[in-house]
Simulated scan of single mutants.
Amino acid sequence: MLAEFLDRVVDNLSFWAIVGFGGQAIFASRFIVQWIHAERVRRSEIPLAFWYISLFGGVTLLVYAVHRADLVFIIGQVSGLVVYVRNLHLIYRERRRLAAEIT
């Protein structure tokens, strides 16, 4: 039974499956980045890299979802991308405001 399952998995590996797995790996790695950052600063906060990794992983998974024509997956990824882009916008807006206060 396990051998049959593994044979089916191997038979289904394709370029698009690799894209999907790659996107999932990128997306999941953001939590490792956040954990390492929190340990370094000794408090829970979300580093800028978390949002970029989220964005890159989300775009990769969106491309995969579009290829699969999976509307549920597409809507889930698009809604996440809105959040990631908005957070990056807020971060850079705050940085510009702080820079303007210094000068």
Rank of each mutant, 00 (worst) to 15 (best):
M1Q: 14
L2W: 15
L2T: 13
L2V: 05
E4Q: 01
E4N: 14
E4R: 06
F5A: 06
F5I: 14
F5S: 05
L6R: 08
R8M: 06
D11I: 04
N12W: 04
N12Q: 05
L13K: 06
L13M: 13
S14A: 01
S14P: 03
W16T: 02
W16K: 07
I18V: 14
I18E: 03
I18K: 04
V19T: 14
V19Q: 15
V19Y: 10
G20Q: 07
G20P: 09
G20E: 09
G22M: 01
G23E: 12
G23M: 07
Q24C: 11
F27A: 15
F27P: 12
F27G: 14
S29W: 12
S29Q: 01
R30Q: 09
F31D: 09
F31M: 12
I32N: 03
I32R: 04
V33L: 12
V33Y: 03
V33G: 05
I36Q: 12
H37E: 02
A38K: 08
A38P: 10
E39M: 12
E39V: 09
V41K: 13
R43F: 03
S44M: 09
S44D: 15
E45S: 15
E45C: 00
E45V: 01
I46H: 00
I46C: 09
P47L: 08
L48T: 04
A49D: 04
W51C: 11
W51E: 03
W51P: 03
Y52F: 12
I53D: 06
L55K: 08
L55I: 01
L55T: 08
F56H: 06
F56N: 02
G57W: 02
G57S: 00
G58Q: 04
V59I: 15
L61M: 11
L62A: 11
L62F: 00
L62N: 01
V63F: 05
Y64E: 12
Y64M: 03
Y64W: 13
A65V: 00
A65R: 11
A65F: 00
V66N: 04
H67G: 00
R68T: 11
A69G: 11
A69N: 10
A69W: 06
D70G: 03
D70K: 07
D70H: 08
D70Q: 04
L71M: 02
L71P: 01
F73Y: 14
I75G: 07
I75H: 14
G76I: 05
Q77L: 01
G80N: 07
L81N: 07
V82G: 12
V82E: 10
V83M: 13
V83A: 08
R86V: 15
R86K: 14
N87I: 14
L88P: 09
L90S: 11
I91K: 05
Y92L: 08
R93F: 07
E94W: 08
R95S: 00
R96G: 03
R97M: 04
R97Q: 05
A100E: 07
A100N: 09
A100F: 01
E101H: 11
E101G: 00
E101S: 10
E101I: 02
I102R: 12
T103H: 13
T103Q: 13
